Amino acid sequence: MNDDASTGSATGGTGAASDDGIRLQKVLANAGVASRRVAEQMIVEGRVRVNGETVTELGRRIHPETDLVDVDGTAIQLDGSKRYVILNKPTGVVSSMNDDRGRRDLREWADQWDERLYNVGRLDADTSGLLVLTNDGALAHVLAHPSFGVTKVYIAKVDGQVLPQTIQRLIKGVELEDGRIAADKARLLDSSRGESLVELTLHSGKNRIVRRMMAEVGHPVIELVRRQFGPLHLGTLPVGQARELTKVERGALLTLSRRDGDAPSE
């Protein structure tokens, strides 16, 4: 007998419950967290929270459409309609789903999925690297809005030999035409043959911020790549390739969104 049946009947034989909800252990199993038996053990051990409250009773029923669940502090994706994709954007591609000037745009990758995906934030056409595509508007808001402080890590190849005092200047802040801006972190990775590699960590969403900062300190950018966005890392994903996030990556993103957002991302 289906343990999620209640006074109403299940629909279509899918195990969907009536308005009383679905047993928490079944929800966890359906989300791929663990088998139902292991999920029950997690609940008993106090490792599962629903809407911020620890649940230890096995009879707890929830509504996956509205309730937020986390295990060991990591958010669990319950809404299977949400899609999260990471793209290693090549240079020459504009961060738009429909460029009105006919340039190469993001539809080339977004069209690989049935859902209507949008880019989270932008990368300049001449900047490559990590870009997130999703149909989760609430999560996109948290990732893209600078007020939430989500950091991005860039590697910039710049002209000239960058000195330690220049790195310190980037951290202390430089004056640009639209205000003062400071890197959250900065470090010199390499300097040779008249060029340097600089790693910059920023949470600013200002336009072309890395290029403007490096130009201000006298080292114009030659090449720029974004390697990290919040908890996501580019890793070994080849340029021009896209993939769905892993379960661990999705959990990290949703955890970030629920911690910092004004609304649940599911």
Score class of each variant (00 low, 15 high):
residue 153 V to G: 00
residue 144 A to W: 07
residue 164 P to I: 00
residue 104 R to T: 07
residue 224 L to K: 01
residue 216 E to T: 06
residue 265 S to A: 15
residue 99 D to T: 04
residue 169 R to L: 01
residue 182 A to D: 13
residue 184 D to M: 13
residue 190 D to Q: 14
residue 52 G to W: 01
residue 21 G to E: 03
residue 178 D to E: 14
residue 243 R to S: 03
residue 115 E to N: 05
residue 208 R to I: 03
residue 62 I to V: 13
residue 88 N to H: 15
residue 66 T to L: 05
residue 90 P to E: 03
residue 150 V to Y: 00
residue 219 H to I: 06
residue 94 V to R: 03
residue 197 L to V: 05
residue 129 G to R: 01
residue 176 L to E: 15
residue 144 A to N: 09
residue 86 I to N: 00
residue 108 E to H: 14
residue 78 L to I: 11
residue 119 N to S: 14
residue 233 H to M: 14
residue 80 G to L: 11
residue 195 E to T: 08
residue 138 A to K: 01
residue 130 L to Y: 08
residue 195 E to L: 03
residue 187 R to M: 05
residue 43 I to T: 03
residue 198 V to K: 10
residue 184 D to Y: 05
residue 193 R to W: 02
residue 104 R to N: 06
residue 92 G to L: 02
residue 156 A to F: 00
residue 198 V to E: 07
residue 108 E to N: 04
residue 62 I to T: 09
residue 1 M to H: 13
residue 129 G to T: 13
residue 71 V to Y: 12
residue 213 M to R: 03
residue 52 G to P: 02
residue 235 G to C: 10
residue 245 L to P: 01
residue 81 S to A: 12
residue 85 V to E: 01
residue 54 T to N: 12
residue 225 V to Q: 15
residue 191 S to W: 02
residue 148 F to P: 05
residue 48 V to H: 07
residue 154 Y to D: 09
residue 229 F to A: 09
residue 165 Q to K: 15
residue 223 E to K: 13
residue 174 V to P: 07
residue 47 R to Y: 02
residue 209 I to H: 06
residue 53 E to V: 14
residue 134 T to I: 06
residue 75 A to M: 14
residue 193 R to C: 10
residue 159 D to L: 15
residue 112 Q to I: 06
residue 76 I to A: 12
residue 77 Q to E: 12
residue 224 L to Y: 03
residue 252 A to P: 10
residue 208 R to M: 03
residue 244 E to S: 07
residue 184 D to A: 05
residue 74 T to V: 14
residue 91 T to N: 07
residue 64 P to H: 10
residue 184 D to P: 08
residue 183 A to D: 06
residue 163 L to T: 08
residue 38 V to E: 11
residue 189 L to R: 08
residue 127 T to D: 11
residue 62 I to M: 07
residue 204 S to H: 08
residue 123 L to V: 06
residue 52 G to A: 01
residue 123 L to G: 09
residue 44 V to K: 14
residue 95 S to G: 11
residue 247 K to Q: 15
residue 5 A to R: 14
residue 71 V to H: 12
residue 88 N to Q: 04
